[in-house]
Simulated assay, not measured.
Amino acid sequence: MNLEQLQPYLPKNALVFIENWIKPYPLTLKITRSRQTKLGDYRKLQPQQRHQITINGDLNPDAFFFVFTHEIAHMMVYAQYKHGQVAPHGREWKTIFGNLLVESIEIYPEQLRIYILKHARSPKASVGADSNIAKFLINDSEEHQDYLEDLEIGTHFKLGQKIFRKGEKRKLRYICCDIKTNKNYLINATALVEKM
């Protein structure tokens, strides 16, 4: 893999960290189109005995590096514990991902570092589960969009092609009712929505 091709996707000076982290591993990296269900993915390719990481190519550089770090942590966990039973986002992954975030903290903008360090103490399985991280890294809000958490309970909003009514909060998500079907869904607090 020619890592120089990654440079346009990464923040300044991030490539050095990636080179060091992936050096011992046979890795295939794929930069994909935007996927609504995930930002990145790791898997072990068994027949080829290679690791594969995919990352959405439409992420801003800080988000791309953060997601890449998340997936590298999965690869390292697999390499170290391949014969043991470990949870995908369990203690082992949290430790490795947290250490990688601390090691590379200088890459992130000054205003984001405090949130990265806090996240590193107990990393979440998804970027959206940490509202401070999501707001800085993922959600490039357009003027007509709001974060779900900023809307009043009972407000109608559009997400994708559906219209919902915002309900009560449950942990990091809100119970929202699809107006057309009357079915309830749990929607992340940091989802960008269009207020109706």
Rank of each mutant, 00 (worst) to 15 (best):
F17Y: 15
Q48F: 09
P109G: 09
G57T: 10
V102C: 09
W93N: 00
K38M: 06
P8T: 03
K135D: 02
Q7N: 11
Q52C: 09
R43F: 02
P109N: 07
P11G: 00
T181K: 08
L137N: 14
H70L: 11
K183M: 10
Q161T: 06
A129W: 11
I22M: 05
R170N: 10
I53H: 00
T54F: 10
L10A: 07
K12P: 05
N139D: 14
N20E: 14
V127A: 06
K183V: 08
L137Y: 04
L3G: 03
R43V: 13
D58G: 11
I105F: 12
F97I: 01
L3N: 07
R113H: 12
Q7C: 07
F157T: 04
Y174K: 05
Q111G: 00
M76K: 15
G167F: 03
P47C: 02
Q111A: 04
D62R: 08
T190I: 10
E110W: 08
I107R: 01
P26M: 02
I22N: 00
K30H: 03
Y115P: 12
L137A: 02
Q80N: 15
K12A: 03
K23N: 13
Y147N: 05
I107M: 07
D58M: 06
D58N: 05
L45E: 04
L39Y: 15
L100V: 05
R50C: 09
G167A: 08
T32F: 01
Y81I: 03
L10Q: 11
L45F: 06
W93K: 11
G90T: 02
I105E: 00
D62C: 12
W21Q: 04
E110C: 00
I116S: 13
A120T: 00
S126R: 14
N132T: 01
G98Y: 02
Y9H: 10
Y147M: 12
K118S: 14
N188R: 07
Y81T: 13
Q85N: 15
I187S: 13
P88L: 12
N184Q: 13
L27R: 08
L39P: 01
R173I: 11
C177V: 11
V16E: 12
K38F: 05
K82F: 10
I96E: 01
V86D: 10
Y78S: 07
S34M: 06
E194V: 10
H83D: 15
L100C: 05
L172T: 10
A129N: 08
D58H: 14
L3W: 09
A87W: 13
Y174E: 03
H70Q: 09
Q145D: 08
F97D: 06
L151V: 04
H156N: 06
L172I: 14
S34K: 08
I53D: 06
E19F: 04
V16T: 13
M1K: 14
T181C: 03
T54V: 09
G167S: 07
L148D: 02
A125P: 11
I96G: 05
K44H: 12
Y9E: 00
L29Q: 09
F157C: 07
N20F: 04
E103S: 08
I31V: 15
K166D: 05
I133G: 00
L15N: 04
Q36N: 02
F164N: 07
R121Y: 15
T190H: 09
A87G: 05
L39F: 11
L3K: 00
H119Y: 15
H51Y: 11
M75D: 09
N13F: 08
L101M: 06
R91D: 06
I22D: 03
F157S: 06
Q52A: 14
H119T: 03
